[in-house]
Design a protein around this nucleic acid. Structure first.
Lengths: 251, 251
DNA sequence: CAAATAGTGTCTCTGAGACAGTATTGG
DNA sequence: CCAATACTGTCTCAGAGACACTATTTG
């Protein structure tokens, strides 16, 4: 509470409607070059048995960000990644059949969710491929919409922040990074050009990626082992790739 | 309420904390090539006498968008423009000294706010230049932060939507449009290049701007009269300008 | 050896930016 | 005439994209 202001005596708390406020968290990760989302199966009504985004009620003594971190941990056992950004609020009447609920949706991205442990409100918690989840599941509440909005948000953030590196862990190969862009932008990227943009374009002494000197052993299918890189200082200030514009129709 | 789900009998409404939910609206407009924001002076505590963003309590039977439209009209008499986008939620404990309030912030942009009428909760309502408001006013609650976030949001939206045309009315001169970009991006734009991008780059038969054949009389200071244009169909799908990247330091 | 994946070198061409110059108004 | 604003034409150069080629691994 700010100094110099306090609730006047006799302030009528019932003069405006009150709502439950929840947070819902969309955790995205890359696994086998495929975009994955963390979902929980609801143990209780409403939507008992349906898959849903992890989330729950905000408490009065915590910020929205804190509520998101806490609920994610309680429901799935997952430690919230650094990049945790609020991206939308949903408050349509009837979006929760129980009562009036306004939810604030968060997006976070991680290279590795770690151990997943279903909490007390969930029968099960696991990663789903986003393609499968969208095609085959009917998510609880308006979570289909929230998930779609989250993915659009992530695609935009790739171009304007260092979100890409949040998908890939402290060291990564160029191919891994490329697959992040390809999955989220639904565009094929030319590997040689992708490399060049990372290496050549960085503002002066800073660089987008720095070699570690180490290499990742090649897969059982063969192929040259890829070199490992870490994110350089330039990434924070100026993300390297611009999203391709839609191609013009032929003249 | 969705079909197939209903509140179970005896559902305990008090099992989770409840909040007031408000909406706050940032209305931006261009006047004399300067970015302006619509503010109200608070009639009641808390922050009585301080300038604040228009806004107020959401009702249970309306969506967040509807609440924003209604509150804007009630507090300022301004009819909500088409582009009305939610951009953030604020819920820190104590951000409102009265009670627990979560607010959802909206951004809208308009060429002309029309008649401004202070509502019952406001002593006064008027446009402020953003530069002045940021430098000289102490806005109520966390509205300083909300305003700053709104401007950043608008600058980004210019690059990814047709927001620019929302600033300038149905017909406009190229100079007017240019000043929108210059104010929000805080970048000088070369007028000849700006024109070319609007005319040459549109995807096939669509165009970014269409000439109306009319001209705007020149100002008392002289100068050639500017031709008037209207927004073309291409703008919706692919905004014409990309925000300039920060310049590299010299080698 | 072939298949698979990683990485290099080069060419082309679009389009962003700089800027010189022309057009049309008011005073 | 000059000042002010609108508009046109032209040059340059960075950088996005296409793609041929080389390198290093598994089997």
């Amino acid at each position: 509470m700010r100094p110099g202001h306090h609730a006047p005596d006799g302030y009528d708390q019932s003069s405006f409607p009150r709502f439950a406020v929840t947070v819902d968290i969309v955790i995205l990760t890359m696994f086998q070059a495929t975009l994955q989302v963390l979902l929980v199966r609801r143990r209780a009504d409403p939507y008992k048995g349906a898959w849903a985004l992890p989330g729950g009620f905000k408490r009065p003594d915590e910020t929205l960000d804190e509520a998101a971190i806490r609920e994610l941990r309680e429901e799935t056992g997952v430690k919230a990644p650094k990049h945790l950004t609020q991206f939308a609020a949903y408050g349509d009447p009837g979006r929760d059949p129980r009562t009036n609920v306004v939810t604030v949706a968060y997006l976070a991205v991680t290279p590795d969710v770690g151990q997943i442990l279903a909490g007390t409100d969930a029968d099960e918690a696991r990663l789903w491929s986003v393609a499968e989840a969208v095609a085959e599941l009917e998510l609880a509440f308006d979570h289909d919409q929230i998930l779609a909005d989250a993915i659009e948000q992530a695609a935009r953030q790739l171009e304007q922040s260092d979100l890409a590196t949040a998908f890939v862990g402290p060291t990564f190969t160029i191919s891994e990074l490329k697959s992040v862009y390809e999955e989220l932008w639904e565009e094929e990227i030319d590997a040689p050009n992708f490399r060049r943009q990372l290496f050549v374009e960085a503002p002066s002494p800073a660089s987008y990626v720095a070699p570690t000197g180490e290499r990742r052993p090649s897969s059982p299918k063969g192929g040259r082992p890829a070199e490992l890189y870490r994110a350089g200082p330039a990434w924070k200030t100026e993300p390297p790739l611009r999203r391709p514009r839609k191609r013009r129709p032929e003249k």
